[in-house]
Design a protein around this nucleic acid. Structure first.
Length: 553
RNA sequence: UGGGCCGUCGCCAAGCGGUAAGGCACGGGGUUUUGAUCUCCGCAUACCCAGGUUCGAAUCCUGGCGGCCCAGCCA
């Protein structure tokens, strides 16, 4: 079984592309682009867009560009660019071309001159407040700025001087001359350029004039020969502007903008601003904290790129606002890891078990399969000795109904080893359990005891041979399903999103595991060996996701 | 209240005039040395509502209702 082998389901964008192809539009080419702004790390919502853009291109033998939308230098950086490239690659996609909107600044400027020459753009000296005031409201039309009818020659002169740096930041802007009475506010003479003396991470100080998104995006698309410009729903109202710009400059390409609904994941947020806040205010360790819905965070938690791609395929593409349940994402990673992750044993909260009838110095090297359904994944040796450690939860003095683990006087199977019976509970004065005295049935290795049934199976490690480890149990970052809808999303932060267990013991085979590798610790969950914090003698495992639990206490 | 968009099972989602796919979740059987996995079964006479067209409507028309987005020199 492998992920993503099923036919992709139909969606409205595939239908549009199919129709275009049928009509030989764009000479049968399909060229898309993924255009992130390098002002933060990519998150699961971006994954949806990446899978869509690169996926459509792949599917139709086309290509997809990675283009940084770097028109607002205030918030952007090289570090974010590098992280974005890393994440897109990790997801498994290859861009045909790596570009930045800033590559096109010179051409963008020339097209702006063209618009001015055509009387379709003008330099406005209004302040932001005045512009807002003149723009009107949702129900009232706007009014013309006093500068709206500035002569072309003057506009040209002013715009050139804006570029030269003759004016202060904010003193002038270049605006498109469209329709101040348009019911679509985006068409009420939108700003095309603003003056900002900010160092740009790619163009340095070459420019003090920066183009706005609406103007930049459509032109960049056209310059790259994009056929289908896929973006999220909030840009629907901007499409008339996208088309207006391309219709009014001398360019021979006019991509089709198509909008789809952005991802909304329950118990999560997909706002770069808020993710940034979580990082800067230290609510998480960094952008790659395993609780973060960033691709870097998911990766560090142990998510595979295949699982994320599978998730993006499952949720579909529509124009409907929708909230995806976390269970869908979790199901994707469980399915992948259940099939691919080797099994191992780890005891999170150890309880000492002395097997009194087991020879003192004896050690058995039990051969355990790495996967119950896939023998081809091989096996490893696990040491069994007189003192083993089991999970505190797996023993109960006052067992709840249907408890099928160890109780005093009862029997349980040590996974892959023997059946043991608990003969005696050693307690401290305060009643806490110090250790269990047990006996084993030598005739139960690899076979069931005769005449009785032992229902429970628990995991264990040899006290002497196991290695100490730190296990980090991650839980959802938010305890409210829609943090974004709250007045303050921080109120939804789950105070128990991380539990660090420092006294865990894992089987010895894990001592040589490669950082980044993933395991299923039997009966407890899927874990990934952390690449950052693991020390040679102290492995640190991050819990990716728990096992499904139909018992629950 | 101007404009744009959306409304099919608890959550997603196919469907495109011929009589409601699939996934997740949920409930119940079976297998199991992981209360995991696997497996079998169940889960919308019904598609926001109301009219209409049609032999036939989730699909077409009309009118409602509900939700989301837009008034950055952000993207």
């Amino acid at each position: 079984m492998s992920l993503n082998e099923n036919q992709p389901s139909s969606n409205f964008i595939r239908q549009i592309v199919n129709n275009d192809l049928k009509q030989h539009k764009n000479n049968g080419r399909v060229i898309t682009r993924f255009p992130p702004e390098p002002n933060g790390f990519l998150h699961i919502g971006h994954a949806k867009s990446i899978c869509l853009n690169f996926g459509i291109a792949e599917e139709y033998n086309g290509s997809c560009n990675l283009r940084f939308d770097d028109t607002n230098p205030e918030k952007e950086s090289i570090e974010f660019m590098e992280a974005i490239e890393r994440d897109v690659s990790w997801l498994g996609f290859e861009w045909a071309k790596l570009a930045s909107a800033s590559d096109y600044f010179e051409q963008l400027y020339d097209y702006a001159i063209e618009l001015i020459n055509k009387g379709l753009a003008y330099v406005d000296s209004s302040s932001p407040e005045q512009i807002r005031h003149y723009r009107g409201t949702l129900t009232e039309p706007g009014r013309a700025s006093p500068d709206r009818n500035r002569p072309i020659a003057e506009n040209l002169d002013l715009f050139r001087r804006m570029r030269k740096g003759e004016f202060a930041d904010g003193q002038y802007v270049l605006r498109a001359k469209i329709d101040m009475a348009s019911p679509n506010i985006n068409m009420r003479d939108p700003t095309l350029y603003r003056i900002r003396r900010v160092h740009h991470h790619r163009t340095g100080d070459a420019w003090c004039l920066y183009p706005m998104y609406d103007y930049t995006h459509c032109v960049s698309d056209a310059l790259e020969g994009i056929t289908h410009s896929l973006c999220t729903l909030e840009f629907e109202d901007h499409r008339p502007l996208y088309d207006w710009v391309l219709d009014n400059i001398d360019i021979d390409c006019h991509p089709q903008q198509i909008e789809f609904a952005r991802l909304q994941l329950e118990y999560s947020i997909v706002s770069k601003r808020k993710l940034n806040q979580l990082v800067t205010e230290k609510h998480v360790t960094d952008w790659d904290d395993p609780r973060m819905p960033t691709l870097a965070g998911l990766r560090r938690a142990g998510y595979t790129s295949a699982a994320i791609r599978d998730f993006c395929e499952r949720i579909g593409i529509t124009k409907k606002d929708s909230w995806i349940e976390m269970a869908v994402l979790e199901n994707c990673i469980r399915e992948d890891l259940n099939h691919n992750a080797p099994r191992a044993m780890a005891v999170l909260r150890p309880l000492r078990v002395v097997i009194e009838n087991y020879p003192n110095e004896r050690v058995e090297y039990l051969e355990l399969g790495n996967h119950p359904q896939r023998p081809e994944l091989g096996s490893r040796k696990v040491e069994f000795a007189k003192v083993v450690l089991i999970e505190q939860d797996d023993f109960a003095q006052l067992p709840p109904p249907k408890f099928k683990r160890l109780i005093e006087g009862g029997e349980v199977r040590l996974r892959g080893a023997y059946v043991i019976r608990c003969d005696k509970v050693i307690q401290a004065e305060d009643g806490s359990i110090i250790e269990l005295r047990c006996s084993y049935d030598p005739d139960t290795l690899g076979k069931n005891p005769e005449g009785r049934k032992v229902k429970g199976v628990i995991h264990w490690v040899s006290e002497q041979h196991s290695v100490p480890a730190v296990l980090r149990l991650y839980d959802r970052l938010f305890s409210h399903p829609n943090p974004d809808t709250l007045d303050n999303f921080l109120d939804a932060l789950n105070p128990h999103s991380l539990e660090v267990l420092s006294d865990c013991r894992v089987e010895s085979s894990l001592a040589t595991a490669k950082p980044g590798s993933r395991f299923q610790f039997e009966r407890t969950g899927y874990f990934c060996l952390d690449e950052e914090d693991t020390q040679p003698d102290k492995p640190v495992f991050n819990r990716t996701v728990t096992l499904r639990d139909s018992w629950e206490k």
